[in-house]
C-alpha cells in the first residue's frame, strides 16, 4: 500500500505547533486510526477515477485535520468525521465539471438494476460490488450519503445525525436501499 508522506526536506513548512495544534493532531490521528479504512471506502463511492480518488482522499484528510481546530464535541467523533468527509466529497462531485446534477438519480427514481443472474455467466461477489459501485455512482449526494453510511453499518438515527434528514425519511430510504441491494447481491440465490 502506498504511503503519502511529506518530504523530509521541508520540515520548515510545518506550523510551529502549540497545545491547540497538538490536540488537533491527536484527534486527527485517533479518527484516522478508527475510521481511516472507512474513508477509503467512502472515496470509492464518490469518485470512480483512481487518480482523482487519491486527490479526493487527500482533500478529505486535510479538511478533517483542519476541522479539528473547531471540534466542539457536541457530537461524537464518528459523526464529526463522517460529516466532514461527506461534506468534502459532496463538494468534490458538485464542483466536477464532468458531472451534471440532472444526470443523477434519487433512490426512488434510480433504474432498478437488472437481475445479474445469467446461467451462462458466473456472477460472483466482486461483480456485485462493481454493480453496487456503479449504482452509487448514479445517485444524488444525499442519497449517496445514506447508502454509504448504511453500508458502514450506521443505524437510521445515526445516519440522520450525520446528514440532517429526519430518521423517518432515512428509514424510508433504507427500505428502498435494501430492495436495491437484494437485487444486486442475492439474485443468483433466488434462482
Amino acid at each position: 500500500m502506498t504511503t503519502l508522506d511529506a518530504s523530509p526536506t521541508v520540515p520548515e513548512m510545518l506550523s510551529p505547533g502549540g497545545d491547540a495544534e497538538r490536540v488537533q493532531d491527536e484527534r486527527y490521528t485517533e479518527s484516522i486510526a478508527l475510521h481511516g479504512d472507512a474513508l477509503g471506502r467512502l472515496v470509492r463511492g464518490y469518485e470512480s477515477r483512481p487518480d482523482r480518488r487519491q486527490d479526493l482522499l487527500q482533500d478529505i484528510h486535510i479538511a478533517l485535520w483542519r476541522s479539528f481546530a473547531t471540534f466542539d464535541q457536541r457530537c461524537s467523533l464518528r459523526t464529526w468525521v463522517y460529516r466532514v468527509a461527506h461534506i468534502a466529497a459532496t463538494r468534490h462531485i458538485v464542483a466536477d465539471r464532468r458531472l451534471r446534477l440532472r444526470e443523477l438519480y434519487t433512490l426512488d427514481d434510480v433504474p432498478e438494476p437488472e437481475d445479474p443472474h445469467n446461467p451462462a455467466e458466473d456472477v460472483d461477489r466482486s461483480d456485485s460490488l462493481q454493480r453496487l459501485l456503479s449504482l452509487i455512482d448514479r445517485l444524488k449526494p444525499p442519497d449517496r450519503q445514506v447508502i454509504l453510511l448504511y453500508l458502514e453499518d450506521f443505524s437510521a438515527d445515526a445516519i440522520s445525525e450525520v446528514i440532517g434528514l429526519s430518521p423517518q425519511n432515512v428509514a424510508t430510504k433504507i427500505h428502498r436501499i435494501k430492495r436495491l441491494l437484494a437485487t444486486l447481491f442475492h439474485a443468483e440465490e433466488r434462482s
Binding site: 500500500m1 502506498t2 503519502l4 508522506d5 493532531d25 471506502r41 483512481p50 485535520w65 453496487l132 458502514e152
Partner: peptide
C-alpha cells in the same frame, strides 16, 4: 462485502497532511 472490499487508497501520514 462492502466493508471487506480491497482498497487501493494510500495511507496518508500526519506529516503529509501538515505539508
Amino acid at each position: 462485502a462492502w466493508q471487506s472490499q480491497p482498497l487501493d487508497a494510500p495511507v496518508v501520514s500526519l506529516a503529509f497532511v501538515h505539508h
